[in-house]
Write a protein that binds this DNA or RNA. Sequence first.
DNA 1: TATTGTTATACTCTATAACTATA
DNA 2: TATAGTTATAGAGTATAACAATA
Lengths: 148, 148
Amino acid sequence: MTRHSHDSAAPADALTVEVVELIGTVVARYHEEYEHAAAQHSLTGAQARVLALLSREPLPMRRIAQQLKCEPSNVTGIVDRLEARGLVERRPDPDDRRVKLAAVTEEGRTTSARLRESLHFAREPLAALSAADRGVLRDLLKRMLGAS
Amino acid sequence: MTRHSHDSAAPADALTVEVVELIGTVVARYHEEYEHAAAQHSLTGAQARVLALLSREPLPMRRIAQQLKCEPSNVTGIVDRLEARGLVERRPDPDDRRVKLAAVTEEGRTTSARLRESLHFAREPLAALSAADRGVLRDLLKRMLGAS
DNA sequence: TATTGTTATACTCTATAACTATA
DNA sequence: TATAGTTATAGAGTATAACAATA
């Protein structure tokens, strides 16, 4: 370490820069795969994300917006398009008549499952690593993410 | 390993699933930071990416589209907006009069540099790892990415 | 003829603000 | 009054197709 700085523009050593660039490549690859998998089912990335979310459990529109980190008004359109294709439906919330619960239909569930299967990112890149290596990678990522 | 399958839906073990989810978290975090840094300079993500690209060297419009993996027609609008703000300019290519080279202006270069500095992703998360750990992470990511 | 960049068009995602129906 | 969802609006990114200038 050449210096321990508390300012926000600490000098990045070559190793850190290299790791950041590698992470950038991972991010780009991940997105390409996700968009491609979604497109194979004629879905946009945002639609695929919402479908994946709802395949776990029905959610109020508001909660979807929080998960997507976007404004609630955007969710209306995304769910509209999923609903128009029969992949999602809106149900009333028995406890609060203001709330609408978005839930996957049977077709939505199977589409979501197929989409998950077509996400090769899970298998091909990681297949190059042994189980021990994947364990090391997991621990490093966890420490990295836990730090922020 | 319960089975060695050659089909594309090989069963994912718990460890692999965990690593994929961690990578998904990294991807989400990375994007949030990038968009936030871009927004601090009143730029969209796409504009910031093009500005970063051009800060290395001037490029024909066609090449920008290839780097962004989008249609050339989209680049026209993105460069238009950067040019309207004085961050980028179009120059003729002396060797081929069909080609327009997009290049950063001086202001564009300083904006790009500030943007790079405000990308905390380089520092904070990775600061939790020792140099040795970062080296291990680099090697694992390189093997992972080289595999695809 | 083929290529480069642009224009025109349409769709989706996005944020903001105003509206409704509930609470 | 406050909250959930929607609508209206505007800006940006995206793909497709057609076009002008140049090779």
